[in-house]
């Protein structure tokens, strides 16, 4: 299955006399097979390493199931999650799990199983979207800073350092207090606070990539800075970017949960897992366990799953880097 490795010199006995002068001990860098590794087979390589990691596959399955649960679940399991008055009229508050409410109801009379799906939509959506905002912003910032270097780099990185010294939760609280909290705002705010780490990572990658021969070649051929950054540097830093983005999603979901506890999450009657958990812990001493544990398990499952996926992706991409 594996092609003959062109970098292994043939042993003396096998060496044909005619080739002895040029080939053999000094194979050319672009030997057949060495250049044939297309991005397709690289992707397959990464996918194979990823699938070999059982925890990562489990994490991926959990994540997919959770997405299906939150978005497809409500199609089959209809509940009222927006009208507080009908919720209060039609069901009891803080009811324990029963036939009509498999996971009980909360203090507004909302069905918890349905609310888990409803809040999960917001939590997952904000988590993924905020990580997307952070990654796009951070990658562009880091690549531009690293590519241009010099004064531009110093100024852009000092800006990052200044923001990094502010504990993110203070920034989140201040921003959500000044602007009214909503799903869109939470995405922007969490993304705007989280972009610093990808910016630094990508800048580091860029510093090593910009001196590579192929980047130099593009510049010699008259390629613009924008072309180098977007077509060459960012695609080559994709491993770092993807791995970091995975952890960003997990951190964004946790940040949203912390905001929910501080009462700054998605405003009612909308909800998110953090706000649900915060409502639940308010009544924990009354023994309403069904208002805490299901949503707590949902958050922990998703965050652990994302961490497993991120760890496995890191291993997978590092393998590729080592073999290059």
């Amino acid at each position: 299955m594996a092609p003959a490795d062109p970098f292994v010199a043939p042993t003396a006995g096998e060496l044909p006399v005619a080739q002895g002068v040029t080939g053999g001990a000094f194979p050319e860098p672009m030997a057949p097979g060495g250049e044939a590794r297309s991005s397709g087979s690289q992707l397959r390589q990464i996918a194979r390493t990823f699938i070999e990691n059982k925890l990562a596959v489990a994490g991926f399955v959990v994540l997919v199931l959770m997405v299906l649960f939150c978005w497809v679940g409500p199609v089959f399991y209809h509940t009222n999650q927006t009208n507080t008055q009908t919720a209060l009229l039609n069901s009891t508050q803080n009811a324990p799990p029963s036939g009509t409410n498999p996971l009980g109801t909360d203090e507004s009379g909302f069905d918890i199983l349905g609310r888990l799906m409803f809040g999960g939509q917001n939590s997952l959506m904000i988590g993924f979207a905020a990580a997307g905002v952070a990654t796009v912003l951070g990658v562009i910032w880091g690549a531009v800073s690293g590519y241009f270097g010099g004064v531009v780099d110093s100024v852009m990185m000092r800006i990052v350092d200044v923001f990094l010294s502010v504990p993110y939760i203070f920034l989140l609280v201040t921003l959500t207090v000044i602007f009214q909290s909503s799903v869109g705002l939470l995405i922007i705010v969490i993304g705007a606070v989280a972009w610093l780490v990808p910016a630094r990572l990508v800048r580091g990658e860029t510093l090593t990539l910009r001196v590579r021969e192929y980047v130099q070649a593009v510049r010699v051929m008259g390629g613009t800075g924008r072309r180098v950054v977007f077509r060459h540097i960012i695609p080559n830093a994709v491993g770092t970017i993807v791995v970091n983005a995975t952890f960003q999603v997990a951190d964004a979901i946790l940040a949203l949960a912390a905001l929910g506890f501080l009462g700054l999450g998605v405003p009612a009657p909308q909800t998110d897992w953090g706000s649900m958990l915060a409502d639940g812990v308010n009544v924990v001493t009354d023994g309403y366990w069904w208002e805490i544990y299901p949503v707590a398990i949902a958050i922990i499952l998703v965050v652990v799953a994302l961490n497993f996926i991120g760890d496995a992706l890191r291993d997978a991409f590092e393998v590729r880097l080592q073999r290059r």
Binding site: A250, L254, A257, A258, F261, G274, L277, A278, V281, V284, T285, I292, A296, I299, I300, V303, V304, N307
Partner: peptide, 22 residues
């Protein structure tokens, strides 16, 4: 350590209160 990392810290605090204080 994975679970501790993934659990929101306010949940850990409140469960500690629930079990060790209440």
């Amino acid at each position: 350590s994975f679970v501790l990392y993934a659990a929101p810290s306010f949940l850990i605090g409140l469960l500690l209160i629930l079990y060790f204080a209440v």
